[in-house]
Design a protein around this nucleic acid. Structure first.
Lengths: 189, 189
DNA sequence: TCGCACATGTAACGTGTTACATGATTAG
DNA sequence: CTAATCATGTAACACGTTACATGTGCGA
C-alpha cells in the first residue's frame, strides 16, 4: 500500500489533516499494516487535490498553526473503491532479526539474548497497542483484523519464549559461559 | 536488509554469482525474509568489488553465458560481521489484504471469498516451500528459523480457516445470497 | 518453433525517508 | 528553560523495481 492509497482509505471514513493521517499510519488503526512519513503524505495529499479526488478546507487555530482539513469527494470514493477490487500483492516482510538468527554462530551470546528480549518486548508492546485500539473503537471488520493480528503476534511470541534457549545455545561463546542455567531478565513484559 | 547486506550474507557462506544470489533471495533459503531483484544485486556486487570486499573470477561455459563468480575476502567478512552487531530495525510488514479486510463492508462477497482463498493458498504454498528447504540442508540455525516461520504461518492459516466465515459475513451482499451455507472451493490446498 | 533457463547489465522511473525550515503554546 | 506537540512543507538522498538489451541451447 502506498501513501496515496493510505490517504484515500483514511479519508474514506472521515475528514483528516496530513498530520492526523500520518499519526494513524504510525501509531493508530493502520499502524499494523503500513508506516508512512510526512514526506510521502503531504505530497500525496496535494496531488490528490490537484486531481480533484479530495478537497481542502483551511481552519485557523489560535496558538497552533492552521490546519488543512481534507475531505474525499465522490470521484475519490469511486476511485478508491475500484482500486480495492484490483488483485492484491502478497504480504511483504522484512526481518533483520531473521538474518541475525541465521548467523547465530557468529553472534556473541549476550547480544543474542538482548536481540531476542528486544523482539519479545517489541511484540508485547505491539500487542498492548493493538488491544488498546480494539477497546476504543469497534467496527466489526476492525475487530476481526485486530484479533487476527493478535493471534499472529502471540504465536510468534510463544515460539520465541519457548525456543529462545535453543537459539542462544547456537551462539558463539567467546567466554566459557555455556551451560549457565540462570536466565537474565532484560526486558520487562 | 538491503541488497548489499544480502550479497555479503550469502557470500559469507559460499561463492556465488549474481544470478544465484537473486535466486536464493526470491526462491531459496532467504526468501522468507527478503526479496531482491537483479537491478539491485548486480550494482551492489559491482560496488562491493570496487570497495575491495569481494573478488570476482570469470568462468566461461559453453552454450551458456559465462559466469562471474564472487567470493568474499577477510575485509568483507569483517565488515559483514560488524554490521551484524549493529542495532536492528523492527520487522516491516506491508499487507494489502488487511486493507481489503478493513473495508470488507465495501467488497463484494465473492471477491472476499476469493481473496481469502488466495491468501490461504499463498500461505500453504509458502509452508511447503519452507519445509522443502528444511529437508535439503540443515544448519541448526536454519532449522530454528524454518520452525519459527512455519509456526507463524500456521497460526495465520489456522485463524483464516477458522474465522473466514465471519469476515465473509461482513461483506456487501449486492445479491441476497446471504446465509447460503455452501462453501465454494476456489484454491486447492 | 516457441519459450524457458541460463547469465549479465543498465536506464528510467517510482516511491519513500531523513533532515531541514518555520513558529507558537504548553507541560515539566 | 527545555522539550514536546501541533502543523505544514520541501529538497536531497537512498533504494529498489521494471523493462529493456543481448545471446545460446534445450525441451515440448
Amino acid at each position: 500500500m502506498n501513501a496515496r492509497t493510505l490517504c484515500l482509505s483514511i479519508l474514506y471514513d472521515c475528514e483528516a489533516t496530513g498530520y492526523e493521517i500520518r499519526k494513524q499510519s504510525t501509531e493508530g488503526d493502520y499502524s499494523y499494516f503500513v508506516h508512512v512519513s510526512y514526506g510521502a503524505i503531504y505530497p500525496a495529499l496535494a496531488k490528490l487535490e490537484q486531481e480533484g479526488l479530495v478537497s481542502v478546507r483551511v481552519e485557523a487555530q489560535d496558538g497552533k498553526p492552521s490546519k488543512k482539513i481534507y475531505s474525499i469527494n465522490e470521484t475519490g470514493k469511486r476511485e478508491f473503491l475500484d482500486s480495492l477490487l484490483d488483485p492484491i500483492a502478497p504480504d511483504i516482510r522484512k526481518s533483520a532479526f531473521m538474518l541475525v538468527a541465521h548467523f547465530a554462530r557468529e553472534i556473541p551470546k549476550d547480544l543474542m539474548i538482548q536481540r531476542i528480549e528486544e523482539r519479545i518486548a517489541e511484540h508485547s508492546q505491539e500487542l498492548e497497542t493493538i488491544q488498546k485500539i480494539g477497546e476504543t473503537h469497534d467496527g466489526p471488520a476492525d475487530s476481526w483484523i485486530i484479533d487476527y493480528c493478535c493471534t499472529c503476534i502471540q504465536a510468534s511470541l510463544h515460539y520465541l519464549r519457548t525456543n529462545k534457549e535453543a537459539l542462544i545455545g547456537l551462539t558463539k561463546s567467546d567466554d566459557e559461559q555455556k551451560i549457565t542455567p540462570a536466565q537474565p531478565t532484560i526486558a520487562a513484559e
